[in-house]
Nucleic acid binder design. Sequence first.
RNA 1: GGGGUGUUAGUUAAGUCGGUUAUAACGCCGGCCUGUCACGCCGGAGGCCAGGGGUUCGAGUCCCCUACACCCCGCCA
Length: 607
Amino acid sequence: MARFITELKRTHTCGQLTKADEGTEVVLYGWVNNRRDHGGAVFIDLRDREGVTQVVFEEDVRPEVHDLAGQLRLEYCVGVRGKVVSRGGNANPKLKTGEIEVHASELEIFNRSEPAPFQIEDKIDTAEEKRLQYRYLDLRRAPLQKTLMTRARVNHLTRNYFTDQGFLELETPFMVKYTPGGARNFLVPSRLNAGKFYALAESPQLFKQLYMIAGFDKYFQIVRCFRDEDLRLDRQPEFTQIDVERSFVTQDDIFETIEGLVCTLWKEVLGVEIPRPFQRMNFDESMARYGNDKPDLRFGMEHVLLTDLVRAHDGGGVPLLKEAVDAKGIVKGMVVPASANLSRTEVDKLEELVRGMGSKGLARAKVAEGGEWTQSPFAKTITPELRLALTAACGAKPGDLLLFQFGKESVVHTVMANLRLHLGKKLGLIPEYGSGGTWRFLWVVNPPLFEYDEEAKQWAAAHHAFTRPHDDCLQYLESDPGKVDCYRYDCVLNGFEIGGGSIRLHDPAVQARVFKAMGISDEEARAKFGFLLDALKMGAPPHGGIALGMDRLVMLLTGAESLRDVVAWPKTQKGTDLMTGAPGDVDAKQLRDLSVKSTAEPVKEPR
RNA sequence: GGGGUGUUAGUUAAGUCGGUUAUAACGCCGGCCUGUCACGCCGGAGGCCAGGGGUUCGAGUCCCCUACACCCCGCCA
């Protein structure tokens, strides 16, 4: 008998064989996906990353091979040699290779498998905790195999796209100097410099700008970034960005580059043509209509800003509304169509939801025939004039339900944005993945450069301090910083921010004014960003760029519901790796070498 | 830092008003079976009900604490 692996090389994958291969002698390698032992004949579904092929072991052909096949169990790793035979009337239409099967003449068990902690199936109910603990088994499942293969394809397509257009793939350091502002950094103690720390790069931002200054005018990188912030469904502590920077460009040039990439990905991976150019929306408009800067445009239920109306009616007899506008808060409303037919209990549940997000409550009103409000805390006190004006402004018809939020601007926006998304999902307004026409790309543009930090009583960079203000706003830098818009842009898809970037500030004089507006002294600026400020004075070209969240792109391309489903080895919500146990303890000597001492209380071990 | 949900055989779940031996399916072990593909049939093993404390004659079930996981707010230039 010939030997597997050394002599018998794999001839086909398990997703490959068809009727056309009938009569061919083949060698397959893979895992036992399922077995059906009929005594005289053993059926095995053999699985590799390409698919599943049925293998048959018959008693009267090779008794010793049949006997060995009888020992096979789920997830055994095996090699099989045999002949491709048509299944005739026994074809399985559910299987890509269902028209044929392999009649085995040789079998080798490379490795047996203990019973797996969960069964390796496409659809699985096993708790994610258990799946993450045995991630290498979870990754054997077809949906995750497919996702990671898509991910590899995205990497490949991205490299080709940029390389073909003359971009250089250049690397940047992960271990960098800590710079304040922005995301919290992971820190790495320096053994050779006691008491000093590297930071893990939260993005290649400054280095890619320095590449521009160095003259590498078209740069890209598929790069890991690290942020020590609290995690979410769509946030991991280490994640991958498609990072891009160009010199001598406008915002529109960046948009063209990125739209080209995204359209290539959607065409090649999904076969979908995305219309260009992408829709654009001003930041202010997005906040007003959707409550955030990453609106999901796949459904309506837009917000209506009612602040001016309420102020014009001086609260309309409702003390809470008057208080809100008097305190410089805002008022927003939203219409839930009559067809939604929400019960009293369901609306109470919504109220619970918004309380969890910092809201004091959920004011509501059901519009009756004739414009009366019912089921509303405002119904008795509100003036008819304001009531009719609000109903009209929201475009509500009899039977519709009005929902209101009022008070502090940021809370109202957040609560209303989440309420809209929640209702969109609950009422089935969001088309399912793959149903077509569901890719709503959007550029959110022209946000303010600064936002006011209430605690510090100080204007601060809304994104980062190196974003270029609009030229026609420069006059307000000193007098009214809140009025300064900038060349910052976010690429949004179906409610996810898939990328963000800006045209950078390359003019040292304007840079100095921006720092001044933020109350950053020359010395402070020098201490924090000295090397970049120096570089900007050395013939820095006009430049700008963007970073796309690669994991999120793959998530959207594959219809995955969580970032953890598109990252091979993800962390839990507390940033731990359930498989390896990271982060772990280190011994006292290691800490001494690093001049590091932990102040953490020893963890009480449960006994 | 805050709010919420959950934790019962290897896995997924059921478990009534607090009541005496904690069920089922799949998987696992043994046996039978040549056309199955969610194969079938017969038999079997498998549990500190997350951990700790309390209430009670009696706790999987009620209360408190802790751990872990998940979702959200804050945070994420």
